[in-house]
Design a protein around this nucleic acid. Sequence first.
DNA 1: CGTTGTTATAACCAATGGTTATGGACGTGC
DNA 2: GCACGTCCATAACCATTGGTTATAACAACG
Lengths: 314, 314
Amino acid sequence: MVMDVRVRDLRYFLAVAEEQSFTRAASQRLYISQPALSKQIRQLEQSLGTVLFDRDRRTVRLTPAGEALLLYARRLTEDWEAARLAVSEASALAGTTVRVGFQMRIGRGLIPAVTARMRQRLPGWKLMFRQVSWADPTVGLAHGEVDVAIAWLPVPDTGALSWRVVAREDIWVALAPRHRLAGLPTVPFADLVDEPFIALPRTAGAQRDFWLGAAARQSPAVITGEAETAEESFEAVASGLGITLLSAGNAEIYHRDDVVCRPVNGLPPSELAVVWRTVDTRPFVDVFADTCRACARPAAVAGQVGEPEPCAGP
Amino acid sequence: MVMDVRVRDLRYFLAVAEEQSFTRAASQRLYISQPALSKQIRQLEQSLGTVLFDRDRRTVRLTPAGEALLLYARRLTEDWEAARLAVSEASALAGTTVRVGFQMRIGRGLIPAVTARMRQRLPGWKLMFRQVSWADPTVGLAHGEVDVAIAWLPVPDTGALSWRVVAREDIWVALAPRHRLAGLPTVPFADLVDEPFIALPRTAGAQRDFWLGAAARQSPAVITGEAETAEESFEAVASGLGITLLSAGNAEIYHRDDVVCRPVNGLPPSELAVVWRTVDTRPFVDVFADTCRACARPAAVAGQVGEPEPCAGP
DNA sequence: CGTTGTTATAACCAATGGTTATGGACGTGC
DNA sequence: GCACGTCCATAACCATTGGTTATAACAACG
């Protein structure tokens, strides 16, 4: 029987070895419960066929077998870290993948069209999609988790990011079916200003404000919950905890029976854009952005020339 | 997010890289289904944030990132193998663990008694138990998987193994509840000779013969199934596929409602022994064997002086 | 056009990895 | 001696992961 260790098992082992305590290693280094750690170490011992720790009620000490594993555990975890770095570098240098960040489902036929176009313009390249939480307003661009992003504006307007609009849509509101406004065909935003809202995380910045309708407010919104993903947001709405704004297209894409979506009057439309780091001169980034724009609906891009526009935030 | 790879993931990756085919790697190298392999490689790619294989309907080729991982994957799998060997050697040399092999549950109060005694005689040592299949008549001793074993005789009588009897028990038979002999208080073996038996694996050798009642047979047994563990054997008996012999103590230990056990007349008793490699001079092996004998029931060891006795095999 | 071979995806179930609750052993302080 | 706190192990339970079979889509070939 070949026992295939997981680097995490080795991290667990190292934590216990260094802390000399299951409880402290679990709670202070690994952030798991003590029984989970006890169980994992026991399994590792059984797989290896030997005891790695001498357990005394007061102390946990490495056995000679445990000492032997200690050296290897350190080496293996370091080697794995080096492997990940090598893979990341090779990927970036060889450039066969475009990593695309997104916060909400893209839909709108955009990705199939872009994928087909990219296949012609950059043969052999692949698109890899990464969902990023609303907590990161740069949609993974700031820390290089992705190469490009498909994001709802506004994104941080510091000049670090550039974008082109690929869709423009009216604002809708998501309500619980029993909400007093659920029966209206259209909802004036004035009727929503005092409603409890489900907000984006604070770190979302201007995006949070936009989706609270800040452009049409004179005072802060009433916030009864925060959500990091659209899924979390809809769950909160369905439970009656609050309401949330969304684009018309997303009202359709995220349709569900336990949430009612209605058009809202009195708010500026929302815009979906392809976003990239301004300093990123890698050719595939341009190709991707151009391709997205070429695949966008004509009405969405009229009048937008790719320059950052003033933020409507408070 | 720290991604903790498992050596098995790397083995999967290496198999695909070398076969250049998911289907062949899955079925011929890894013995898993193709979709499972597809899913695991996809997950590895997502965790690393890059594509490792360019997939074409006809071929699977490594990307540059995949090539980078290839080197590390080989190194990590080799390092892990070296780690396991180092641990095994350290364990054996340092000697803080007695690995005890067994094929059937030991019971009979033996292990608690032995554990307590060993704690006094070898402070700091631990017992680690390994269940070994009936396919290995040496109960893990031949290949060094264990240091000592608690096994039902006969074990291979080549001189390589030594043993001391710790329990002696009459033979019982396990029958399906609806079996024609299930209602008898005691069953003569003559009534069982033509019954279909569940046998031990062929590789079990003399043990297989013993538990088919070879000592009282003139012709081969009728065998309708084989089992590698007691659990498998009982399942087959309960399903009506055949019958099996067992010791009196095990009839009690393995009691279950869907199997009837009855004493058998006409067969020599069975013997449970502590077994070790004759050439194994490590002191803890002697200590363990002595301790087992000291804890055995007096009636079991009368007349047994620890020498290998003639095998009753056919 | 039909057949074959390949990888991906879906639905489902088994196995693994986590949680909280509890137990037993030990040490310390009163 | 008793009460309490600390520590690791175990049990019961649930969520997540890893496997299966079935199926779909696509490309190549005859």
